[in-house]
């Protein structure tokens, strides 16, 4: 019964996907408008995987024996894929360190604040303001202070992640039922033991949810950061493509971001799910 409904679900999802793919192709044939530099605004699949993907080799700087078109070489798929790979690595690095710094500082600060009622009251208004501040409004400041390239973008991603993880941690600790602390104290647990055996496991499901949230956000933040003034990375390809209305190239990078965000999300979800096996609300089925 269950297996059958799972199979029909999969069939349904694939059907929807196919409809979208064919629908897009149909649309590309109906809408033939072109951008200012002659590229179609609704490129069909043939154009996307042909011209647009091939032209990604424009962003290849040469190396591995594959000449760069900017140095007179031909536009080739290997050069295009290498260009995308190199730009992706630069973006990965920013996302990775942004998440790492942001999580460490957000969770750390969260613990500091959550363990004392006084400090929680003290910073509550500030947290509220920070939470309400649109992340993207802060990009210019990060550009000015830390530069528009890697370090500035990492710090910007870290800032966004830290805000979410901080709020998540404070709330998670506050939501631990009092009786768990009381029980630990009455069997003779020290503060360190309570932290390790009660607080950490009790807050993990909530921290995990915050982390998944900040994971998705960090991809948005890194794109936003790269769109404004970075010299390398996937966002830079988009910036150039945008200037010449190369819709196809913008779409290819957008697809890459969807794939990366989806894969990283699924990976963390699968790994961390094992740790909260105990949780009453754990849904054993994979998501999506």
């Amino acid at each position: 019964m269950k297996a059958k409904s799972g199979a029909s679900n999969l069939l349904g999802s694939i059907t929807v996907l196919l409809v979208l793919i064919f629908g897009w192709e149909l649309l590309s044939r109906i809408v033939t408008a072109k951008g200012s530099y002659g590229e179609p605004l609704v490129p069909g699949w043939g154009y996307l995987l042909g011209n647009s993907l091939l032209r990604m080799s424009d962003y290849w700087d040469g190396g591995f024996g594959i000449p760069a078109p900017s140095q007179g070489g031909p536009a080739t798929y290997p050069a295009a894929l290498l260009a995308l790979g190199a730009a992706s690595l630069v973006t990965f690095e920013r996302v990775f360190f942004g998440i790492a710094f942001g999580t460490l500082s957000g969770v750390g600060l969260g613990f500091l604040v959550a363990t004392s009622d006084a400090s929680r009251r003290l910073i509550a208004p500030t947290v509220h303001i920070v939470r309400m501040t649109p992340f993207l409004a802060m990009i210019p400041l990060f550009n000015l202070w830390f530069g528009a390239d890697t370090s500035g973008i990492i710090l910007f991603v870290a800032y966004g992640v830290a805000v979410i993880m901080f709020i998540g941690t404070v709330n998670a600790v506050r939501n631990v039922p009092r009786v768990y602390f009381d029980r630990a104290a009455t069997v003779g647990a020290s503060r360190a033991a309570i932290f390790r055996h009660v607080i950490l496991p009790a807050i993990f499901p909530e921290i995990r949810a915050s982390f998944l949230l900040s994971f998705g956000l960090s991809w948005s933040l890194v794109v936003a950061g790269e769109l404004l003034g970075a010299q390398s990375g996937l966002g830079v390809i988009v910036t150039y493509a945008l200037q010449f209305a190369y819709t196809g190239r913008v779409m290819i990078v957008a697809f890459l971001f969807i794939i990366y965000a989806g894969l990283s999300f699924a990976l963390f979800d699968a790994v961390s799910r094992r740790i909260i096996d105990w949780h009453p609300q754990v849904d054993k089925r994979p998501q999506g």
Partner: peptide
């Protein structure tokens, strides 16, 4: 030792780990 009014069994520990918790700390 206290047996509480609310359910104070730690959901993140298996049953035997819960019983052994006091000895563990």
């Amino acid at each position: 030792g206290v047996i509480f009014q609310q359910d104070a069994v730690f959901p993140w520990m298996r049953v035997e780990e819960n019983v052994a918790f006091g000895l563990r700390v």
